[in-house]
Every structure is written in structure tokens, then in C-alpha cells.
């Protein structure tokens, strides 16, 4: 692996993280899944000083996620769009360029739509959650795909919560 190709891979990884943020912002689940390997696993976790434990709030493999997203129209959901502001902090390419890990910061805002009292609230943006993405990638022919994403939240207060992955 040459330095140049490592840089190239890093660029691609950065790009795919930002593409994911855009797809998730648009609730475009299909585009998101297209960026994920078939073995992709997703989780939302948090550490609770209250009970002194690391917790998992949500998890699923790709198949489960596809199923859950397909079911969403049958559920009553808060449709207030989420807006993810992401900054990629570190990317480590390893395994001869066949895998990589990345850590990104994420701040998610909720743009109120049908949450509480839409006459007053709709159109207003509120801070929803903050945290970090811990991503693992598999790389084939120089093209990265998500293998694992752990969204580590700082929040334990989540109010109404959400039906959507973060």
C-alpha cells in the first residue's frame, strides 16, 4: 500500500461518511444501505453514569434494519426532520488497505414539524442529541463500505425518542 493510496482511501472514507449523513438526513434509507456491506451492523449506545454501565439503545444487522425501515409507514412517528452535522476526526486505514476505522463527531438537530404543538413549534430547530460515530469499513478495490457503525451518544435524556437511526 502506497501513501498515495492511503490518502485516497481516507478521502473516500470521509466522503462516504458525509454521504451517509446526507442520506440519513433525507430518510433515504436505501442510499444509506447501498453504502453498507451485507455484514453491516448498526448500534446506538451510551454510557450511563447513573447506573455506571455502557448501554445499547438500539441495534440491528442490515437485514433487520431494512425490515424496520420498511415497517415505518405503519407506525405513528414524529416526522420532524433530523439534521446531522458531522466532522470526521480520525481515519485509520489498516490491513493492507482492506479495512479502516474512523471516528467522527456528530451533532443532530431536530427541525420541528409534527412533534408537539406544530402551530408554535413547526419550523423551529432544536438540539436533539450529541455524540460520536465509531465506524468500521471493509475496502474492496479501494472502495470502502460500512461494516459497523456505533453511534455513541452522550445523551441519556432522549425525551420522545425516535423511530429513525441516527
Amino acid at each position: 500500500m502506497t501513501n498515495a493510496s492511503a490518502v485516497e482511501i481516507e478521502k473516500k472514507i470521509e466522503k462516504i461518511i458525509y454521504q451517509t449523513a446526507l442520506a440519513l438526513d433525507d430518510n433515504d434509507w436505501k442510499s444509506w444501505f447501498d453504502l453498507c456491506d451485507d455484514a453491516f451492523f448498526y448500534s446506538i449506545t451510551s454510557f450511563s453514569p447513573e447506573i455506571n454501565k455502557k448501554m445499547t439503545y438500539f441495534s440491528g444487522n442490515k437485514k433487520e434494519l431494512v425490515g424496520l425501515m420498511d415497517m415505518l409507514p405503519k407506525h405513528n412517528t414524529d416526522h420532524s426532520p433530523l439534521h446531522r452535522h458531522t466532522s470526521v476526526y480520525t481515519i485509520d486505514v489498516g490491513d493492507e488497505g482492506r479495512s479502516a476505522t474512523a471516528i467522527s463527531s456528530v451533532t443532530i438537530y431536530q427541525n420541528m414539524l409534527d412533534g408537539i404543538n406544530s402551530h408554535l413549534d413547526s419550523g423551529e430547530s432544536r438540539l436533539f442529541v450529541i455524540g460520536k460515530y465509531f465506524d468500521e469499513f471493509t475496502i474492496e478495490n479501494g472502495n470502502p463500505k460500512f461494516l459497523n457503525r456505533e453511534t455513541k451518544l452522550d445523551n441519556r435524556r432522549l425525551d420522545k425518542g425516535s423511530h429513525w437511526p441516527l
Partner: peptide, 13 residues
């Protein structure tokens, strides 16, 4: 869970 099927609905209610 906070991202589960029912709790979110209950809380919207």
C-alpha cells in the same frame, strides 16, 4: 428503547 417501536408512539401520545 428510546428508538423502539412502542415507546416513541406512547410518548407522542
Amino acid at each position: 428503547g428510546p428508538f423502539g417501536r412502542n415507546l416513541h408512539e406512547d410518548l407522542i401520545g
